[in-house]
């Protein structure tokens, strides 16, 4: 009864993602935020708990249909946190874990169950959501603004594939610094090619190398700057295929690996293995070996994974709109982003 029409907005979102109508994490984040805004505005909900239930069902829906899609669920989780915060401040009751003293002195009546119906809740949540939206939209620029702190003159920067954030970052740095960029092409998707073309147009000296040349080039590279699809709870990355090898080579030559990530990419999930269904998708093998190969296709297996797992030891720095962080600090960031109860769903 509740199910069908309610979840139609989410199924729309899911189908858009599946059909590649929205591809960028940025667009997904914005769309998710819009979706929840509409939900909060238009749906009838009486208490925070009810609202949270609605949001949680949507998170579950997305997780069932698109296990690797993390941005949408992260945004939703963050919004859950926003709801909790607003509720707490509106009911003027303190939430859990504020301080040891409060923990000891609190009594059962203080424990929040979010079921009070508060009139100001809706508007305060919407205000906060508005701020959040601005944060998402300006996240890219904020990261790019930090570029000159990280890139010096005459450096050789290596990047992999195409990340919108990295592109902006490099272009911003190129305004006052002179440096060279090596782009790893990222076969079989060849995103690196479009990034290289775009950078070269902005007058940055760019070289394109195939994936196999990473180790060879690494001895001359000063920094590796990459974007990622998701940042996992242990500080590891789910990034595009081939980045693990790049990170390993960087470690070998002691080259710092800087990961540019927005806050909506931090997810509270851990991954178990690289081949896990929830972790990786394989795309069409035709990108690796064409149909015209004929007879041998009957007898061989071909894999074309989209993602790669990079363990946290290989990452030097995370840059978000608030500044830089070490991978070991990620757990703390997560606790600021999401509420403990919302981690596992």
């Amino acid at each position: 009864m509740l199910d069908q029409e309610n979840l139609s907005d989410v199924s729309n979102l899911v189908s858009d993602i599946k059909h590649k109508k929205i591809y960028n994490s940025f667009d997904v984040a914005l769309k998710t935020e819009d979706l929840l805004e509409k939900l909060i505005l238009q749906r009838q909900w009486k208490s925070a708990r009810e609202l949270m239930k609605l949001v949680k069902s949507r998170i579950k829906f997305i997780r069932d249909d698109l296990p690797t899609e993390a941005t949408a669920t992260n945004v939703m989780r963050h919004i859950l946190k926003i709801i909790r915060e607003e509720y707490e401040s509106a009911s003027k009751k303190k939430g859990e874990g504020q301080s040891l003293h409060q923990l000891v002195t609190s009594n059962s009546s203080d424990i929040l169950d979010y079921s009070e119906s508060l009139s100001s809740l809706r508007s305060s949540i919407l205000d906060h959501l508005g701020e959040y939206k601005v944060e998402i939209e300006s996240s890219c620029d904020n990261i790019a603004a930090q570029a000159s702190e990280h890139i010096h003159m005459d450096e050789m920067i290596m990047t992999v594939g195409k990340s919108h954030t990295v592109e902006k970052f490099l272009k911003c740095a190129a305004k006052d610094r002179n440096f060279k960029v090596v782009v790893v092409e990222g076969a079989p998707f060849y995103y690196g090619h479009s990034l290289a073309a775009s950078l070269a147009k902005s007058n940055i000296q760019t070289t394109v190398i195939p994936d196999s040349a990473v180790f060879a080039m690494m001895s001359r590279v000063n920094k590796v700057i990459i974007g990622t699809h998701t940042v996992l709870a242990n500080g590891g990355l789910r990034a595009s295929s081939g980045i693990h090898a790049v990170a390993l080579a960087a470690k070998q030559f002691s080259v710092p690996v800087v990961v540019l990530s927005h806050m909506y990419k931090f997810t509270p999930l851990y991954v178990v293995s690289n081949n896990h269904e929830a972790f990786n998708i394989c795309a069409s093998p035709a990108d690796v070996i064409p149909q015209s190969a004929g007879k041998i296709l009957n007898d061989i297996e071909v894999y074309n994974p989209i993602f790669d797992y990079v363990p946290p030891e290989l990452v030097t720095l995370f840059i978000s709109h608030q500044g830089g962080n070490a991978p070991s600090y990620v757990y703390r960031l997560l606790s600021e982003l999401y509420h403990q109860d919302d981690y596992d769903m």
Partner: peptide, 24 residues
Amino acid sequence: LRRLVVAGIKCTYVLINALSYVMN
């Protein structure tokens, strides 16, 4: 790959970016 398949060996083919995927 072609020569091995013709000889009857069971083969898998990947590009170098999928190295971490298959290495396990």
